[in-house]
Design a protein around this nucleic acid. Structure first.
Lengths: 153, 153
DNA sequence: AATGAAAGCTTAACGCC
DNA sequence: GGCGTTAAGCTTTCATT
């Protein structure tokens, strides 16, 4: 279902749509000098195979009052980190959950509108079963937050 | 230029477009029971004021061979962390750069296709002026990576 | 796989309220 | 600020290669 090989044209289409998700198919066709029905078919395939997961408007967090970013390191009971991670995934303020090598714990990226929301979240996490301890770093400034992938080619 | 107050309708528009950046204006108009010229005008304003930064296709990193995520903590010479951060921002493999409280250092999120790219990047960072040391955690598994904002309302 | 052509929608601009 | 109308442009399907 997803063992398709991308050619040069597919990669160009992905780059264009990653840069501007609303580029018209007819515009892509013009740039790549192909028929727009062809581009349409290729984009459909890229979506069906999962290369394109979604289309999103990217919103400005600060204008929307979500000013605070924090990273929380969670130590869990041995062997229970995946289980804890699955439950933490339900928390909407938690944007990222990564299982780390080394000390077998979790790293969370959190975005909240007020410090109090962070405090609340931390005490909630502290009471999760399997969580031993947390340690938190608040970001003073986020210099770069890029979601685009660095595609080769 | 951006001291606009969002009403209920603006927030609904943002939510719809954040969930699906290609929703037709006419479809939004239908859902909110308004004229599509009105929605068009509001979306233009939301874009102009910066609430909507961009539209993007979200691509699958693993299908594209970008399998490895790592977090790098960078210790810098006192007072030079912002300067180092600005230079690091040029590295395309570095997706995020955050200045942290506490120990006045930087946290980087990196995504690469091969371990060797991570090794290369680390030795490059180690040679940056103002960088004292780095310490790296590789992610075994990324359980959640959500870019959508948790909008109230 | 790629294409041109046709039908049905969508956007973007206008003038009016 | 909101609306309906309209022209231009877009997407989608389909028969053809």
């Amino acid at each position: 279902m997803n063992d398709m090989t991308l050619d040069e044209i597919d990669r160009k289409i992905l780059k264009i749509l990653q840069a501007d998700g609303r580029t018209a198919l007819s515009e892509i066709a013009r740039r790549l000098d192909m028929g727009s029905a062809t581009i349409h078919e290729r984009v459909n395939t890229l979506e069906a195979e999962g290369y394109i997961q979604d289309y999103r408007a990217v919103l400005d967090p600060e204008l929307l009052g979500l000013n605070d970013v924090a990273f929380i390191r969670v130590r869990t009971e041995a062997g229970h980190f995946s289980e804890v991670a699955e439950r933490l995934a339900e928390e909407t303020a938690i944007q990222e959950i990564h299982e780390l090598t080394g000390e077998a714990d979790l790293l969370l990226k959190v975005r909240v509108g007020e410090r109090s929301a962070l405090t609340d979240l931390l005490s909630r996490i502290g009471r999760y079963e399997g969580v031993l301890s947390t340690s938190t770093d608040v970001a003073l400034r986020s210099v770069k937050e890029e979601q685009r992938l660095d595609l080769p080619g």
